[in-house]
């Protein structure tokens, strides 16, 4: 079961590489100009090259095939997922960077390479990646044994920690040793909460927020099942996206998302971040279709159109309405 969940990192990475190779990422307007980091493509290609060497022939073949035939709907989605998180991060950091110190904890980090641009632009940032042990070991090896990453990654401000996220007390104990509880702290869960059991996820959220209660931000990206009671109170039971997703993932790869149909809309998903009565928390949530229509400029949309022909706009809407970006600030 754990292995199946760990393998999802390869999906996330393949999607990202497809979006990079087709030119969706990085976005000049939203990534390079905002943060002044220009090696985005290089670091991803470099990491991808070395992780591929560590995979079996079958996995390699599968990844290569999916890279070659990446559908525009998928590339748009990966683009939106990456960009939206980056934007929230940069907004927060630029408003909380006065006293010069900020720490980021990426829970279920997988192969995400966000720390490299961030650490290179913000000299007073420290960054912690957490995932299961095999994932962390591999990532540590790939980064540690590379001359290239030795140069671009400031090792003194970056830590890789192995831990099972469903054991919230272990997560807290580990983090306490290496972080400053009084400083603003950002937690990222990008497709990570969805793999946890409801109670485990809730305990993780509650205990981290209360431990870092001084100031913080939680950014979370996840699928939501849809259906059931709609966001406007209207019954939306014709929406079967989540049910179908659940059975597809089960059938094709025995993958479970325990809370997909529980936190099936924006309201219920947000409610998980409002369980602590004594913490004043501002929770915002958008689905990624809303993000696409409202937050992406016309110029940027124009640029995307030029990359691949996006015919399937209705499908994009269906898919992206079932993924949310939450930012909870306290």
């Amino acid at each position: 079961m754990e292995r199946i969940v760990q393998q999802t990192d390869l999906d996330a990475l393949s999607c990202k590489m497809a979006a990079v190779s087709k030119g969706y990422l990085p976005s000049k307007e939203l990534q390079e100009n905002v943060c002044g980091f220009s090696d985005y493509k290089t670091i991803h290609l470099e990491y991808f090259k070395s992780i591929m060497k560590n995979l079996g022939r079958r996995a390699q073949g599968q990844i290569n095939r999916s890279l070659q035939s990446s559908f525009p709907v998928m590339n748009y989605g990966t683009y939106l997922r990456t960009i939206s998180i980056d934007m929230v991060l940069h907004d927060y950091i630029s408003n909380h960077n006065d006293d010069g110190f900020i720490q980021i904890v990426n829970l279920g980090c997988g192969s995400d390479l966000r720390m490299i641009p961030l650490l290179s632009i913000y000299p007073n940032m420290s960054y912690i990646d957490i995932d299961y042990e095999p994932t962390i070991k591999l990532k540590g090896n790939l980064l540690g044994n590379s001359e290239f990453f030795g140069k671009v990654l400031p090792a003194d401000r970056y830590r890789l920690l192995s831990c099972d996220l469903s054991k919230h007390d272990e997560v807290i104990n580990l983090l306490k040793e290496v972080t400053d509880l009084t400083k603003p702290t950002i937690f990222i869960t990008e497709c990570a909460l969805c793999y946890l059991k409801d109670d485990d996820a809730q305990l993780l959220i509650n205990s981290l927020i209360s431990t870092y209660r001084k100031a913080g931000l939680w950014i979370s990206y996840d699928p939501i099942g849809g259906g059931g009671e709609g966001p406007d109170g209207k019954d939306d039971k014709n929406d079967r996206f989540g049910k179908i997703m659940q059975s597809n993932l089960r059938e094709t790869r025995s993958l479970e998302m325990p809370t997909l149909l529980k936190y099936r809309n924006k309201d219920s998903y947000s409610s998980r971040f409002k369980q602590l009565p004594d913490v004043n928390i501002d929770v915002r949530i958008q689905n990624l279709w809303e993000y696409f229509t409202k937050n992406i400029s016309d110029e940027e949309k124009q640029r995307l159109k030029g990359l691949q022909f996006l015919d399937e706009i209705e499908e994009l809407q269906v898919m992206q309405s079932h993924y949310v970006l939450l930012s909870a600030q306290w």
Binding site: D11, S66, S69, C191, M245, N248, L249
Partner: peptide, 10 residues
């Protein structure tokens, strides 16, 4: 045919 393609964002 079982699809090995990335259908969802995981």
């Amino acid at each position: 045919t079982k699809k090995t393609q990335m259908d969802y964002f995981l």
